[in-house]
Design a protein around this nucleic acid. Structure first.
Lengths: 262, 262
DNA sequence: GATTGTATGAGCAAGATTGAGCAAGCTTAT
DNA sequence: ATAAGCTTGCTCAATCTTGCTCATACAATC
C-alpha cells in the first residue's frame, strides 16, 4: 500500500463520513469507497465504528443518519425492534408496582410498553411522552403530563417547562430507558434536553429503575444520563452476554434479567 | 442486477414509501414499482415489512396509511357535529394569522380544526390539547404543550401545571371556543379547570378571538369564561339567527360570520 | 534490527435482495 | 353465476452485500 499523499488518515475519513451522512441523510458503501479510494471493507469497518458511537445506522448497502432514522421510524417501528424483550421487561417492571403508587415514565418505547401494562391500574402516572399520554387516555389512572416543547423525533416533551413541572413532584418510582449503556459511562442518550428531563425524573423518585434491553449494552450515545450505580435497579433480559452478566455481578449492580419464553 | 448508482438503498426506498403513503393516504403497487424502477414483487416485500412495523395496511393492489388513518378517524368522529361550520371558521381564523406568529389554542374541536389548518406553517403554537399535539406532531411549527393532568373526557390538560406554564408566555393570538354563549353571561364552558386555562390563555394574548359556531348561541354551561366584549373578535357562521346577528351589531361586538358554501 | 500494533485489501463463504415464472385468489363486468 | 383480467404469494436462480480470515504495509517501540 503506497503511502499516498492524497490519502486521508482513518480518523479524518471517518469524520468526513459522519458529515456526509448527516448532510445527505443516507449514503452507500460503494460510493464512499470510490470517493476515498479505499476498499469497501474499510468503509464497512468505519461504519461499524460510527454505528457504535451512535453517529449513523447501517443499512443494507449503506448507512443512514441516526437522527433521521429516529424520525422516519415512528414509535411503532422502534417498539417492534426488540419488542419481545421490551414487553417482557415492562411486564416485570409492572409487577414491582403497588396500586396507588405514583410513577414517572420517560419518553421511550420501553416505557410505552410499561404504560400499556399499567393502563388499567389505579396509579398516578407522570410522563413527558406524547405516546404514553395517548396510550393512557382512557385509563383510570391519574395522568400528568409535564408539558414542554414537542420533540418530533421521539414524540416527547422537553425544555424548561418540562423541567419545572417535574420539580414539583416526588414520586415512588421512576422508570427510564437509554439508547446506550456501558460500565464506565453509565446510561447514555442522544438528546441533551431529553437527558435533562430523565435526570430530573430520577431525582424526584424514591426508587429509580433503568429499563434497558440487552441490545443497548455496549452501545454509546452523545449525552450521559447517569452512572450505572446511580439507579436502584436495572432490568434487562437474558439475551445479555455472559460477559456482561458476570460484570454486573462483580460490580454488584442490582439487576434483574427477564426470561424470554420463545 | 447492475449496481446502479441512481437506485436507492432498500431502506431509503422503504422510507420514501412510508412518506408517500402517509402523504397520500393510499398508494398502488404498480405506481411505486415504476417510480422506483423495481419489480412489483419488491414493492410487495417492502409493504410486508412496513405492515409488520405498523406503518401501513396492505390492500388489494396497493396499501393505505394505518396509524394516520386511526388518528384521523377519531378526529373526524368527534368533529362530526357541525363539522362544516367548524372547518369554515377554522379556515377563516387561519387567514388572520401571519407566518411567525405565536398562537395559543384551547382544547376544543374547533381549535383542533384550526390546528389542522396551521399544521404546515412556520408558527409557534401552544396548547393544552392532546389532540392538537397529536395532529401537530409532524408539523414544522414549534409546538409547546402546557402539561397538567389529563382530562379524559376532552383530551385536555388542566390544573396548576397548565396554569403555571401558560403564565410564562405572551402570544400574538389566542383562540378559544366555548360550550355556550349569551349576551349577558358571555362565553361559558362546563369544567372549572378548563375554564381557568382558557382565562389564562386569553390574558396572555395580544389578540383574543372566540371561535363559536352558531349552534353554541343561547346554550348555557356551568362556568363563565369571560364577557362577550372581552374578546377582540368573534368568529361564527351565517347559520346564526337573524336575531342574534342584529344583537351583535347593536352591541357593537366585533364579529365575522363565515359563509357556508354547501 | 526485531517486534508489536494498527490499518488495509483480497478472497471466500454465508446471507440478503431482487426479478421472473407460475399457480391460486380476488375483482369486476357481463 | 361465470369468465376474463389483475393481483398475490411462492419458489428458484442470479446478483449483490457482508463478515470473516489471512496476508501485507507502515509506524512506533524496545
Amino acid at each position: 500500500m503506497a503511502s499516498d499523499n492524497t490519502r486521508l488518515l482513518p480518523s479524518e475519513r471517518q469524520q468526513r463520513i459522519k458529515q456526509l451522512v448527516l448532510a445527505q441523510g443516507s449514503i452507500r458503501v460503494a460510493e464512499l469507497a470510490e470517493q476515498f479510494g479505499v476498499s469497501e471493507m474499510t468503509i464497512r469497518r468505519d461504519f461499524e465504528l460510527l454505528e457504535e458511537e451512535g453517529h449513523l445506522e447501517r443499512t443494507f448497502g449503506g448507512a443512514v443518519a441516526s437522527e433521521q432514522t429516529a424520525f422516519e421510524t415512528s414509535y411503532t417501528v422502534r417498539l417492534s425492534k426488540h419488542k419481545p424483550e421490551k414487553m417482557a421487561i415492562a411486564a416485570y417492571a409492572a409487577s414491582l408496582i403497588q396500586d396507588g403508587d405514583s410513577i414517572a415514565l420517560d419518553a421511550s418505547t420501553t416505557c410505552l410498553a410499561l404504560a400499556r401494562e399499567l393502563a388499567k391500574r389505579p396509579l398516578t402516572l407522570i410522563t413527558n411522552s406524547l405516546d404514553c399520554a395517548i396510550e393512557l387516555r382512557a385509563s383510570p389512572a391519574k395522568i400528568l403530563l409535564t408539558g414542554g416543547y414537542l420533540r418530533q423525533v421521539s414524540g416527547s416533551f422537553a425544555g424548561p417547562l418540562a423541567i419545572k413541572a417535574l420539580q414539583e413532584f416526588r414520586v415512588d418510582h421512576c422508570f427510564v430507558s437509554a439508547k446506550g449503556i456501558s460500565l464506565e459511562d453509565g446510561l447514555m442518550d442522544s438528546d441533551a434536553d431529553e437527558v435533562e428531563v430523565k435526570r430530573v425524573m430520577l431525582a424526584a423518585a424514591a426508587k429509580k429503575t433503568a429499563l434497558v434491553d440487552s441490545s443497548k449494552f455496549d452501545k454509546r450515545a452523545l449525552v450521559r444520563i447517569c452512572g450505572i450505580a446511580e439507579v436502584d435497579l436495572m432490568i434487562s433480559d437474558t439475551y445479555l452476554s455472559a460477559d456482561w452478566q458476570r460484570r454486573l455481578k462483580t460490580a454488584q449492580i442490582p439487576h434483574y434479567l427477564v426470561e424470554l419464553s420463545s
